[in-house]
Amino acid sequence: MHLNDSQLLAPSDIEMSHILGCDECENKFDNRVNIQNKLNLVLAENSHKFEQVSWLKFNSELGKKNSNNVSYINMQSKKESREMKKRYLFVAIAASLFIVFGLQINNRSSQRNVLNNEQVIANLIKENQRLVSELNVLEGKENNRHENKFLLEMELTHIDIELQKLYLDSGNDDDKIKLWKHRQEVIKRLMATNDHSHVIRI
């Protein structure tokens, strides 16, 4: 039985000995370590250049914080906390129950939406790949000129650039889905022109 992704991410001693004795898992584990190393390297190289806050400045902030008696613990002293608890106990219980139930429903549906979006995007990528492959198969058949062809190719290039930008700028899933669908439409329209002398290949 080969190890799953989660086990490869944090193998136990027993799982580690399996890795050492199994070529398939060892290969996957090597890939996992390579990716981890790149992550380490990149995060070390990209450290932000911070200005050092001098000790004098920090110490004066620390002094202010203490003398003004606004420290976190002081603000939440036990006495105040007890009084607040008594005063707002019933209101808080009612409000908490309302919020907890409300948030649970909201949270579950939003998490499911995220997972659904990921599935939708993965399917759209596959569909795009399938269409481009079909387009390539059609290449070499009829070669009739279509006045829209150039514009469609331009549109496809534009969508690809936008998609790439979205992924690099961590755009939202809705925009990605919209663009992948749009890309799919453009490929279909390109296929309909039956002219793919400059068609993309994967």
Partner: peptide, 30 residues
Amino acid sequence: LTDQDDLIFNLESKDLFETDWCDAKIDLVK
């Protein structure tokens, strides 16, 4: 994420590290 949401994600998948997909030419930080 709530603890219940943890269960939604499939921890049994086995294809995450089939390849070293972390291409050095792509900006990992971005």
